[in-house]
């Protein structure tokens, strides 16, 4: 059985990305143990993948009008709307020898927690390669990963009650991508657990399901704790990167 330190957290997007990067670095030098962080973006935020173009991915007029901040992640993958009233993000920082070496297998292994959590809430969730969690063919979770110095950082989403209308208006997708999935709009590709099971889900309920889900799926003992001073200090130094226009518009 693996042991995971559990952190439950909330804050803005720049803080979260800075902290994920800080934890990856600190785990690599054994300054912190293997950790899972379950967190809420406050305020609701858009994050985009490291390689994405802002103008191709995000409706900037809409998010500016709604006051939704934009943050570029250090990980690849696609754009995400983190609804503070409907989504919990997980990040796992773990030594590479505890996960499958193959990247796609490791996506699946670490995403096992969100799949299990969705099933606990009553939705028949499955993992769909490369990196999606789906319910009846529609995406409710996406994962992204970075590996450095023998450590894996994987973070991913758990859309339990995301406002899909805001999501659909915030994000753009290349026509080529939508056509290949046989759908005309982002709205047709995604779902939430609440939508599927037909009742509202509270954040507490989603959080409890995630804790149980990750514990069962990863056969892990989750021990709740708090962030150390060195993590907060390093995250604070890195936060400026994630707030900067140079980083966010790395690929305009």
């Amino acid at each position: 059985m693996i042991k995971l330190r559990l952190i439950i957290d909330e804050g803005d997007g720049a803080y979260h990305m800075a902290l994920d990067e800080a934890m990856l670095i600190l785990r690599a030098v054994n300054a912190i143990p293997d950790t899972i962080r379950l967190y809420v973006f406050k305020p609701s935020t858009i994050t985009i993948g490291y390689f994405q173009s802002v103008s191709e991915t995000v409706n900037e007029d809409f998010i500016r009008f709604r006051g939704i901040p934009l943050v570029r992640r250090p990980t690849g993958g696609g754009a995400v709307y983190h609804d503070m009233n409907g989504e919990i993000t997980y990040s796992i920082v773990i030594s590479e020898d505890k996960v499958p070496k193959n990247h796609i297998e490791s996506f699946k292994f670490l995403a096992g927690g969100v799949i299990r959590a969705a099933r606990i809430l009553g939705a028949p969730a499955e993992f769909r390669p490369l990196n999606d969690g789906v319910i009846a063919g529609r995406k409710f979770s996406g994962q992204a990963q970075l590996r450095r110095l023998g450590v894996v950082l994987q973070h991913g989403t758990f859309m339990y009650a995301t406002n899909i209308d805001v999501l659909a208006q915030s994000l753009l997708a290349p026509k080529l991508k939508l056509m290949s999935k046989g759908v005309n709009a982002i709205k047709d590709r995604v779902t939430t657990i609440s939508n599927y099971i037909g009742r509202p889900i509270s954040r507490d309920e989603a959080l409890r399901a995630l804790i149980k889900g990750f514990s069962e799926a990863l056969r892990a003992e989750l021990v709740e704790s708090s962030l150390s001073e060195v993590e907060l200090l390093l995250a604070s130094s890195l936060r400026w990167k994630y707030l900067s226009k140079e980083w966010t518009y790395l690929r305009p």
Binding site: Y50, F51, T75, A79, H103, Q145, R148, R251
Partner: peptide
């Protein structure tokens, strides 16, 4: 040469 997308690459800096 600008390369964008939603793929993954390791290490990402190589792109």
């Amino acid at each position: 040469v600008v390369i964008t997308g939603d793929f993954f690459a390791y290490p990402p800096e190589n792109i």
